[in-house]
């Protein structure tokens, strides 16, 4: 029974064509090492028995929980928006979030520089997984967990954008995002730091960020076009 359930679950989360036999699945990481690494999180996030809201919400049962779902916790507008867009804390999104919180959720109140090393992230997540309600339903490590990194190569970040081209491209943004920075229903994009903008657009393009319109709009932007937009927006300030 359990085996059957697990097989179905895997079939749903794995990308098409990557059928992996259960036996081949590696553990997420080293939970013991993760417990040590977690100390950099524990100032804000409690986990385990009696965990409650502190600066951040408790992380019990975080795996496959809907984002923004802890009663009584005061989430940022950005996180609430991502939650409404359908963000689920699966392994892939947890990994992206702790790599760079702002890449996944602009305006998050989680002011954390991120865990750059993939192995460190896996170990922390292996530790957190011990506190999820139904760990048997969680694949030990989906192959996507390492595949989608939000970090951009220095070459991509170094592209100097063509601001004039960016101005033309930006006209498409302004159909929805208001020039005056209003953010009712649709977030403001004025005064967005250039690098954060670039990272966010790449995260949409990789479909890590959950919004279908933005995934589509960013999906057809090249690295140069994202840089062009960033250059134009930076020039506005």
């Amino acid at each position: 029974m359990m085996r059957g359930f697990k097989a179905i679950f895997l079939a749903m989360v794995l990308p098409m064509g990557s059928a992996i036999a259960e036996e081949d699945v590696a553990p997420i990481g080293d939970a013991e090492r993760g417990a040590e690494l977690y100390k950099q999180c524990s100032g804000c996030h409690m986990v385990g028995p009696d965990a409650r809201n502190r600066t951040g919400p408790p992380l019990n049962g975080i795996f496959d929980r809907k984002a923004g779902a802890i009663e009584g916790f005061f989430y940022s507008k950005g996180l609430k928006r991502a939650a409404a867009d359908g963000l689920i804390w699966d392994l892939e999104h947890l990994d992206a979030y702790i790599e760079n919180p702002k890449a996944l959720v602009s305006g998050t109140r989680m002011s954390f520089r991120g865990v750059k090393e993939a192995q460190d992230r896996r170990d922390v997540l292996a530790y957190l997984r011990l506190f999820s309600d139904n760990p048997q339903n969680i694949p030990e490590a989906a192959p996507t967990a390492q595949a989608v990194e939000v970090a951009l190569s220095p070459e991509v970040l170094a592209i100097v954008g063509d601001a004039e081209y960016g101005e033309y491209l930006s006209s498409e943004c302004k159909t929805c995002h208001q020039r005056d920075g209003s953010d009712q229903g649709i977030p403001s994009i004025t005064l967005w730091p250039e690098e954060d903008f670039v990272i966010a657009m790449h995260a949409y393009r990789k479909k890590i960020r959950p919004h279908p319109v933005m995934q589509m709009m960013a999906g057809r932007l090249s690295d140069e076009e994202i840089a062009a937009l960033a250059a134009y927006f930076a020039k506005l300030e």
Partner: peptide
């Protein structure tokens, strides 16, 4: 809510 934001955006555009 997004559609309301879009309405404000496109009409100001």
């Amino acid at each position: 809510e997004e559609s309301i934001g879009w309405y404000e955006g496109i009409t100001s555009d």
